[in-house]
Amino acid sequence: MVTVRVSINLKPSLLDSAGRTVASSLRDLDFSEVQDARIGKTVTLQMEKYDEARVKSMCDKLLANPVIEDYTFEVIE
């Protein structure tokens, strides 16, 4: 088994309204150095075997929406 971690994040140009609230809450907790927070998603895949092209295809077809999101992935074990 191979474990692949896919990270999906909103494109930097888009407002992350939930992330903005998290940053504000952190500042309320005296973490005044926080300027911004962005919330992404992680999808951890257990695969019989790793094939980079197929993981990329999964991202393009379902896991990420190219209109609003960027993605990266890596084999973690």
Binding site: L10, L14, L15, S17, A18, T21, N65, V67, I68
Partner: peptide, 15 residues
């Protein structure tokens, strides 16, 4: 999401 219309819908700015 199906690509029949352009763009995407995201969380309301006000949350």
């Amino acid at each position: 999401e199906a690509g029949l219309l352009p763009g995407a819908l995201m969380q309301n700015e006000s949350e």
